[in-house]
Design a binder for these strands. Structure first.
Lengths: 202, 202, 202, 202
DNA sequence: CATGAATGAGTATTCATTCAT
DNA sequence: TATGAATGAATACTCATTCAT
């Protein structure tokens, strides 16, 4: 961790922050490298000292986001011994720091929507894997709950879990896209939590 | 309805079909007008006889899709006098003909994700309005059910409805994006339906 | 001169009139064949029954104009036995029907200005030839006047004639381009005539 | 005047020189930006670093030319106290550096001839204004000469001046278009000068 | 003869990327 | 290391011309 490395990393973060901001404002295809350079207050050439191509920017952005999330999910497993509580905590987690995600949502959309771009960035794969790990978390917790008798046994863990994942993504996405009032959204989350709890508890 | 009008309309449909196919395969930005022309087996120039610009293609595609949906929602209101049944039918409707929608999902993503593009196509507006009409449908049915005593009265119709809309969109989207096995998805829908019914029924 | 030929000729004239009108309004390069067809109230395809290419239109227009002028110049030679009078009549001729020419002036400019276009239309050649025949007319008259003793003998006929041709073209062109008041322009012509007469008369 | 500014201005001149050369050879509409880039020995993209659009090239070319002329006209007023001499000097000025103008004449023609192009370049306006300032110069000198008794008093200054302007433009234009022998043209100018002098002197 | 739908060659402009300084 | 001037591949759209009806 020489000072040079720190500098490099700091500069990479500056660039990413600028990129996120500009991508959020104009979208990936409408953003020029020059825009990002200007936002980051450096020359166009400098960007290429830190990122080989334009595509590497969203690639890196997504990588960091997913990494963050995975770490937090792992924590829940450790801190919530009760499966039902863990599930509800997992739901909460999906809606945490959503305002931060909101900036990146359009970028995710645009990249996922463009297969050619997606192929070279590999977001789909990462995204699926991310959802899959969330799914696995729920499956595991449900099955644990069932074997402990807290969760109704005639519930298909894989099916319910996957439905829950889609639901959470849908709700989070709508929040990010349509900028609900925080209270309104909190109420929705509350209703969902309530519904899920009463549906799965035996 | 002279033969010429029939021809024109048929040709527009041909072009739209080709456009949908190519957009689905490569994404909007990666699709060249030449690609669409080739797919539609006609010259580039011909495309411009039927659509003024490239942007007019997704615009038209979205317009037709949304129109279809609105008509079907109206039918449900008429054919399902029972509110709970109407709600469940509405849920079913969201998952009907999903394979057709699947082709267009990436296009929707890409356009929604790119603010600049979205502004000139106006998809966001249409899309929000579409979700809003679905939301209204659920709100209306829930309130009707509450006044008839079939639905628990301590449920906030606007909050539950909006959560349900996000949920349905999330599930439909995941189906379109990740190409679930039909049976697997049907099972998810079944669980959702079951959960919703037992949650709202008094 | 069967009726068919008359019809053909009439239709050609219709097209040329439309072409002149549209060329005058928008210029050659900005005029689409479709514009001319619309102005002439016929189909685009019909134009091609009467003129092989777009370039043939200005070619024909110029041809007719020059032909007209040549005929009129010949008349002067026959009707004005007095050389000085003939010269002044030649000057007058250049300013006759100028309003009709005014429509075509921009077209002439645009074609003369574009060497590539000019090459294939051959306007430069025609135009030079036209000016040359006017020049010859003046040369001939001046020399006749000199041998008859009416025109000062120490005047170089070729030099004065060519200067006069440029002058006439300059004045006619400015009238066409800048749309002088007729009286203002008539006064200019009068001054020129007066100056020329007093300069050449012995 | 940092070195960068010097470079930029030099490069602009290089491009303009190339543009003038190619426009002269093929005409505005027939000239591709690639042609100019090749002539200037740089990439197409570089042109756009210095000029936003193709139209900006003739716009700039005309601007520089007109500016030059205005400056020179002002000098004459100061250096020629005698009105008749000033007028003759003005005439001479119009024929100075004509070979340089010759390259641009076709471009002027093409732009003036195409209303659509002219509108966005604004050449007509500049050109009229230029002629008007020349006209004003002559009007002023004639009237000064008349009040000093050197110029015949029964001469309408505005009418004669405007006629003279058209004449000068006509002669200059024909020289540029038809590439007269310099001696032949000088003789024409000499005759014109002689004629004007003897016509206006009292 | 008349038509206008179909065509595709042709072009201004953009922008990711490079590299000399 | 930082820069931004230079580059040219890439692409939507136009329009003269053709030809089936």
């Amino acid at each position: 961790m020489s000072p040079k490395i720190v500098d490099r990393e700091a500069k990479r973060q500056e660039i990413l922050a600028a990129a996120i901001a500009v991508f959020a404002e104009k979208g990936y295809h409408s953003t020029k490298m020059a825009d990002i350079a200007q936002k980051a207050e450096m020359g166009k050439g400098t960007l290429y000292e830190y990122f080989r191509t334009k595509e590497e920017l969203p690639k890196t952005i997504f990588g960091l986001m997913i990494q963050d999330f995975d770490q937090q999910i792992s924590k829940i497993e450790q801190t919530h011994p009760d499966p039902v509580e863990a599930i509800l905590a997992g739901i909460q987690l999906c809606f945490q720091d959503l305002d931060e995600f909101a900036h990146v949502t359009p970028l995710v959309f645009e990249v996922l929507g463009n297969k050619e771009l997606d192929r070279s960035i590999g977001l789909s794969e990462d995204f699926e894997q991310w959802l899959e790990s969330l799914n696995q978390f729920f499956v595991t917790q449900i099955q644990a709950g069932q074997s402990q008798g807290q969760i109704v046994s005639d519930l298909s863990a894989p099916i319910f879990a996957r439905m829950l994942v889609s639901t959470l993504d849908g709700m989070a996405t709508h929040y990010c896209l349509f900028h609900f009032q925080p209270e309104f959204f909190a109420a929705q989350v509350s209703v969902l939590t309530d519904m899920v709890r009463s549906y799965i508890r035996s």
